[in-house]
């Protein structure tokens, strides 16, 4: 096993472990920070698919954008939100355990199905074995030609989402 593959599996392990922690942690701030590791590792894995530009976008948008927004969202709300598990009766605890077991069961079932799907040889008929690097110039070229319409539309969408989110989050003036 070369260093190259070792790094890949390291990223993979880190991604899954931190994602799991983010999901089961009882403290919201901790889970968001753990999510930082997850998104970072995803970017690392994307580098191994030779999609450099995609990896950079992942870092900039997820790590730089979405996480900050998430943190802001949490900071703006009250302190006691951070404590996920408040004081609960025995019934509520039993219900939440049942909830988790069911959720985990369904998720594991889906994973089994997906694993069967992905270990099937069916993919071989479609994909080729040779990996090709994607030069960043051709990404830019495609962005400005074939994908020009979605590129323009997404700018419109971002403007809309920005205005909408700002409007929703804004506090009403009381003097109206």
């Amino acid at each position: 096993m070369s260093v190259y593959t070792l790094i890949f599996y390291f990223f993979g392990l880190m991604m899954l472990a931190s994602a799991l922690y983010a999901v089961i942690s009882t403290n919201l701030v901790r889970s968001v920070f753990s999510l930082f590791l997850t998104f970072f590792s995803v970017a690392g894995i994307l580098v191994f698919t030779r999609a450099d530009y995609l990896a950079i976008s992942q870092l900039m948008i997820y790590v730089g954008g979405i996480l900050v927004v998430l943190l802001f969202g949490i900071m703006l709300s009250d302190k006691n939100v951070l404590e996920l598990v408040g004081r609960k009766g025995r019934k509520a605890i039993a219900a939440s355990v049942l909830n988790r077991v069911l959720g985990a069961g369904l998720a594991l079932l889906l994973f089994a199905v997906l694993a069967c799907v992905f270990l099937d040889d069916g993919w071989k008929s479609v994909v080729s074995e040779s990996q090709q690097a994607e030069p960043i110039q051709s990404t830019g070229f495609m962005m400005m030609t074939t994908y020009l319409l979605p590129f323009e539309m997404i700018s419109l969408l971002l403007l809309m989402a920005l205005i909408g989110a700002a409007y929703i989050a804004r506090k009403p003036k009381h003097n109206r």
Partner: peptide, 24 residues
């Protein structure tokens, strides 16, 4: 790659199904 993404997808699904918290 695919197995890792499948595992990540299922972790995400678990978080949605257990419905503990809107942010989660």
């Amino acid at each position: 790659f695919l197995l890792m993404s499948a595992a990540l997808f299922c972790i995400g699904l678990y978080a949605v199904l257990t419905r503990r918290n809107l942010v989660i």
